[in-house]
Design a protein around this nucleic acid. Structure first.
Length: 219
DNA sequence: ACCCAGGGTCATA
DNA sequence: TATGACCATGGG
């Protein structure tokens, strides 16, 4: 049997944790910056860097694009990979400005915008979809390591499915939702929160971190 | 001393 | 197409 539906799992998570009101940022542009900085990095470390960028008053497209690499890298110290991320951030900002910023990009159809974002060096599928969903408010389901892990351990997906396949798997199953942008927004945020609550690590180490706790969301 | 984190790119086979 | 190395800090 097919078991519980993808939407039902969403409802249970929502009932348990309530709305998360993501993305935690004070502007669309800050969402994009955070999406790049949080690549394989804990959010608490990203917050430190965001605070530093605000304190130095450089959290804007022009300032970030034009400041010295070394200065930006230093401000990005807490996120790790600071040389890589300083370069990615500056390259993204330059591209974003060249495209005409949010005004121009928001006129793109979702598929075109997604393709354009994926063409930017340093922007992979998850980062692109974070930006599409949380900055451009497009109905795109974000897949991350937690999502793959949770649904794999629920027995609903293969652990090594490719990104596109799993994204379309979710989107197809949630295609009849009323407000998909809101549902996709909350769903991804709830998966991340739930993962932290139940210790959804790569290899479950402690006994209490294994199946029984997140199986509440299966049958 | 480990393992892990709201990934992505590049070289290699 | 599919692995593995690499990037690097901070918390548990």
């Amino acid at each position: 049997m097919s078991g519980i539906s993808v939407y039902k799992i969403y409802q249970r998570l929502f009932q348990r944790y309530g709305p998360q009101n993501w993305w935690p940022a004070s502007s669309r542009f800050e969402v994009m910056v955070g999406a790049i900085l949080t690549q394989n990095t804990s959010w608490t470390n990203v917050e430190r860097a965001i605070i530093s960028l605000k304190r130095e008053r450089v959290l804007s497209c022009n300032k970030l694009a034009n400041m010295p690499h070394a200065q930006l890298a230093q401000l990005l110290t807490p996120v790790g990979y600071f040389n890589v991320k300083a370069h990615r951030l500056q390259h993204f900002c330059q591209w974003y400005d060249e495209q005409g910023g949010y005004r121009k990009l928001s006129a793109f159809e979702t598929d075109k915008l997604r393709h354009a974002l994926l063409g930017v060096h340093g922007v992979g599928p998850e980062t692109a979809d974070d930006i599409l969903l949380y900055a451009f408010e497009r109905p795109v389901f974000v897949i991350d390591a937690y999502t793959r892990r949770l649904f794999s351990r629920l027995g609903m997906a293969e652990d090594n499915v490719n990104y596109e396949t799993l994204r379309q798997w979710f989107e197809q199953r949630l295609s009849r939702c009323k407000d998909r942008v809101t549902v996709f927004n909350e769903y991804h945020a709830l998966i991340v929160l739930h993962a932290k609550q139940v210790c959804l690590a790569r290899q479950p180490r402690c006994e209490s971190c294994t199946l029984q706790r997140y199986c509440d969301y299966g049958d």
